[in-house]
Amino acid sequence: MTRTSARRPDMPRTRIKICGLTREADVDAAVAAGADALGFVLWPGSDRAIDPGRLAHLAARVPAFVTRVGLFVDQEPAFIERCAPWLDLIQFHGDETPEQCRHAPRSWIKALRMRDDVDLPAAAAAYKDARALLLDAYKPGVPGGTGEVFDWSRIPASLAKPVILAGGLDPSNVGEAVRAVRPFAVDVSGGVERSRGVKDPAKLHAFIHQVTLTQTP
């Protein structure tokens, strides 16, 4: 599962994105715990989905310097445009082509599900305009939120794009994940929940604490 990666004193810290936020209390708790980014699911096929009106309400609670990320799955450009005023970053989590992503109204990242045949260097070249690649576990028919971990050793030690690591992370394994992969960021949703779509403040703090511990040489 792990790969060898030396800890350099000058290595930037790993950022933290809490995804699937649906409630005011969870937005506040994630910010208080020290999250760098908050993810809002705008794809109606998810049981953590919110609509544009709810997005506007929740996004207004997010303070400066915390990034608001909107997750979309093969959705119409007009809908993404409608949501864009309350977002800082777009997350394309479906089968969007590089050309489709380039027309995003905000800077964007591309999620890749780690199928057996995925070629990460080729994907990094194809999605060269992405701000980062988010790597998630692959489960047929499920765009994301599988709660499953993939083999981190499949990630090359160096990619042309920053890596956001997702897939089955929780307070018990995120420290190991950061030490193994040294990603630019980690992304969690179900791993910090008490029930589907409801975050647990204690798990949020534990998750962020475990990431913070890895930053100490």
Rank of each mutant, 00 (worst) to 15 (best):
I208V: 07
W86D: 15
A84H: 08
A104N: 06
S46W: 03
L120I: 03
V142D: 08
V31I: 15
S195G: 09
F92I: 04
I109F: 04
L38D: 10
A30W: 05
W86N: 15
E81K: 14
G191V: 01
H209L: 11
Q215E: 15
R3Y: 02
K161A: 12
R179L: 13
A126C: 08
V142P: 14
T14L: 06
E76T: 12
H103S: 14
A124Y: 05
K128F: 11
H103I: 09
A37P: 09
V163Y: 01
G141Q: 06
A206V: 05
T212W: 06
M1S: 13
A64Y: 06
R3I: 05
K203S: 14
L71I: 12
R15V: 02
F72E: 03
R61V: 11
R48G: 00
F65H: 14
D26A: 07
T146S: 15
R115E: 14
G45K: 09
P143K: 09
A137C: 11
R131C: 10
D129I: 07
R54M: 12
V69I: 09
Q215T: 11
R106N: 10
D26V: 09
M1E: 10
G70V: 10
V142H: 12
A104H: 03
P156I: 06
S172F: 04
G175Q: 02
A37T: 09
I208C: 07
R8D: 10
A166H: 00
H93W: 01
D117V: 01
N173M: 05
L87S: 09
C101Q: 12
T212P: 12
A185L: 01
G144A: 09
I18K: 02
S189A: 14
V192E: 04
S189N: 11
K161I: 05
V178D: 01
G144P: 12
F207L: 10
V41N: 13
R15N: 07
H209S: 15
D10G: 08
R115D: 12
